[in-house]
Design a protein around this nucleic acid. Structure first.
Lengths: 330, 330
DNA sequence: TTGAAAGCGCTACCAC
DNA sequence: GTGGTAGCGCTTTCAA
C-alpha cells in the first residue's frame, strides 16, 4: 500500500483512517485521508469482499421460455421485476448481476454471488438444483418449498384467474377464450388448471388456445385465428403477455368492436393499457410487490443468517377498465 | 481446504486438478475431482478474482432523466441496450451489474468493477468524472473523447434526424412537428440542433414541443396539445419514446387519420410499431449495434490492456411503413 | 495512539 | 508428478 508509505504511516493506520474505525488522532486521520485522496486511491473492492466473507452480489435471471432466443426484458412484467429487484437490492447494499436467460450453466460458477433469484423457473429447472447443491440460497417459486436453502414467493394464480373469469361472467360473457402461454412455469400451468376447473364447475366448454413462444406476434396470431373461425366469442382473456392496443387492433380487423362485440382482458403490466382506446382491463401480477416480498425474504435470510426456509404469497390486482364493461343498453 | 485433507492431497494438487492445470496423474486428478464433487465443494469466486487481479464485472446504468423516479427498463431502447450488453458481456466472461439510475454515488465504490458503461449521460455528468478519477474505464458517449480512460460510442444524430425530415418532406409534409425529449443527453441536444438547422436551411418555421419527463403520458399530452391548437400539422415526429399505437389513438381522438390527415414517425425500438394499424414508421437507434460496438471497445481495452482512447460511430435505421406514406390518389 | 502480523481462499512458482 | 510457500489487498486482532 503505497499510500501508507507516502503518508509515512502503516497500512493499518491508513485503513483505519479511511474506514473511520480505530482510535486515531484527528490529525493523523486527516493526513491519511488527504494523502489517499490526492493519490486517487480506492480500496480494492474484491479484497474487501474476500476479507468480509461475502460477495454483496445477487444473481438474477428469468427462466421462462429458456430455450427461446428472447430477451426477458421485453416483457413488461419481467422488466419491472428486474428493475425493482435491482433497486431494492442496492438500497440494502447488494448489487444485482443480470444474467441472460439462455446461458451455459457454468457461466455462473465464477460469479461471486451470495444468492440467486430465478424468476419463473421451469418444472425441475436444473439451475435450481445446481445452486442449491452449491449451497447458494435460491429465491424462486413455491416448488422449492421445504428444500434446504430454498425460499419462495408465490402468487395465488387460482384466485387471479377466477377474479377475471368471474368479472367477465358478471358482464354476461359465457364463451370466454383464454389465450395462454405454453411453458413449464407455475404461472402457465396453474392458471390453466384454474381455467379448466372454473369452466368445469359451470358446465362450460373450455376454449383455450396456446402460444408457443413469447412476444406479441404469437399472441396476436392466436387471437387472429380464434376470431377467424366461427362466431366470435363473448370475451378474450390474454393471459400470455401482449401489448393491449394490438389486441384491440386485431378485433377491429375482424370488424369487432371492444367492448361492444367482444370483451377484453389482458394480463399485463404495460402502462399503455390505461391510455389506449378503449382503456383495457388488466390483471396485474404486481411484479414490484413480488420483488419486495422476495427481497425481504432474501435480506432476512442473508443478514440474520436465518436458514429457515420461508415463503410468501403475493396478491394480484384486477384493474377494470372500459374494455371489459358491457355497455348498459337503456 | 478440507477437500484436500479428505482426499489426502495438498490443496495445491486439488486446485490443479480442478482447474485442469499442472502435471498430475489421471488417477490423482480424478480422485480429487470426485472428492470435491462429493463434498459439494465450489471454489470461492471472490478469492479467485482477488488472485486474478480483476473483477470480471462491468457496471451498467442509464443516466437519462437521472432525477426522475423512473425505471430505464421501461424504455424499449434502454431495455434492449441493457439486455444486449449483458448478453455480450457474459459471452466474453464478464457479468454485468445493473445499477438503477438514481443511486447515491458512493453505492458504486464498494463494487468490484473492471469498467462501467454509462448510457446517455447528462452534460458534465459527475459520475463520469468519479469513475475516471478512480481509474475505472468509462464507456459512454462522445463527450469523453480524449480523456484518459474514456471510451465512446456515438450515433450520427444529425444524419438520423435529417433522414426522417427528408423522408417526411418527400411525402409532401411542410409543417413537421417535433416532439422532443427535454434532457441533457446528446440524443436530445444534438437532435434538436439538427431539427432547427434543417428547418432554417429551408426557411421553415420550426415547430417543436418538449416533454419534460420520460414515459408515454408526457408524449401523449404533448401530442394532444399540438393537435388541439389550430390546424393540424402535416406530420408528427415523436423523437421522445412513446408507444406507437397510442400516437395513432391520439390522432384518431382528434378526428385525424394516419397517414391520410397526418403523417407519423416514431423514434422507437418497440416491435409493436410493425404490428399496429397502420404500421408505424420508426427511426431505430439500433441499441444492439451500439451494445456490440461498445463491448468490442471494452474488450479490446480490458483484454489487450490497450489504453488508447477509442470511439465508434454507429448508424441508425429508418423503417418506412404505412404511417408516413402519403397515399397516392389516383 | 499506532503498527506488526495473521489470515480471508485461492493459485503460480519452484523446490522436491 | 506432487506439495510447500508466498502473496493478491484488505481488515482485525493484539502487542507495543
Amino acid at each position: 500500500m503505497d499510500v501508507a508509505r507516502e503518508a509515512g504511516l502503516s497500512k493499518t493506520t491508513v485503513s483505519a483512517a479511511l474506514n473511520g474505525t480505530g482510535r486515531l488522532s484527528a490529525e493523523v486521520r486527516a493526513h491519511a485521508r488527504e494523502t489517499a485522496r490526492r493519490m486517487g486511491y480506492r480500496p480494492n473492492a474484491t479484497a474487501r469482499l474476500l476479507r468480509a466473507g461475502h460477495a454483496r452480489l445477487i444473481g438474477f435471471t428469468a427462466r421462462e421460455y429458456v430455450e427461446a432466443p428472447w430477451s426477458y426484458l421485453e416483457s413488461p412484467y419481467l422488466s419491472e421485476l428486474t428493475h425493482t429487484t435491482a433497486q431494492l437490492a442496492l438500497e440494502h447494499g447488494y448489487a444485482m448481476v443480470l444474467l441472460p436467460n439462455c446461458s451455459p450453466r457454468d457461466e455462473w460458477t465464477d460469479l461471486p454471488v451470495d444468492a440467486v433469484i430465478l424468476a419463473d423457473p421451469e418444472a425441475d429447472d436444473p439451475l435450481v438444483d445446481d445452486f442449491l447443491a452449491a449451497g447458494i440460497p435460491v429465491f424462486t417459486d413455491q416448488r422449492v418449498e421445504g428444500r434446504q436453502g430454498g425460499y419462495w414467493v408465490d402468487i395465488d394464480y387460482d384466485a387471479a384467474m377466477r377474479s377475471v373469469l368471474d368479472h367477465l361472467a358478471a358482464q354476461g360473457a359465457r364463451d370466454i377464450v383464454l389465450i395462454a402461454p405454453q411453458n413449464d412455469s407455475q404461472w402457465a400451468q396453474r392458471s390453466m388448471d384454474s381455467y379448466l376447473a372454473w369452466c368445469g364447475e359451470r358446465g362450460i366448454a373450455p376454449h383455450a388456445v396456446a402460444t408457443q413462444r413469447p412476444g406479441n406476434a404469437a399472441v396476436l396470431k392466436a387471437a387472429d385465428e380464434v376470431l377467424s373461425e366461427g362466431p366470435p366469442p363473448d370475451a378474450l382473456f390474454a393471459l400470455a403477455e401482449v401489448s393491449p392496443p394490438l389486441m384491440i387492433d386485431v378485433a377491429r380487423k375482424h370488424g369487432l368492436s371492444v367492448p361492444d362485440d367482444v370483451l377484453l382482458v389482458c394480463c399485463s403490466e404495460d402502462p399503455v393499457a390505461a391510455h389506449c382506446a378503449p382503456p383495457v382491463t388488466t390483471l396485474s401480477m404486481q411484479p414490484s410487490a413480488i420483488a419486495a416480498a422476495g427481497m425481504e425474504l432474501l435480506l432476512d435470510a442473508l443478514e440474520s443468517g436465518n436458514v429457515e426456509p420461508a415463503g410468501r404469497v403475493v396478491p394480484t390486482r384486477l384493474d377494470v377498465r372500459a374494455s371489459s364493461l358491457r355497455k348498459t343498453r337503456e
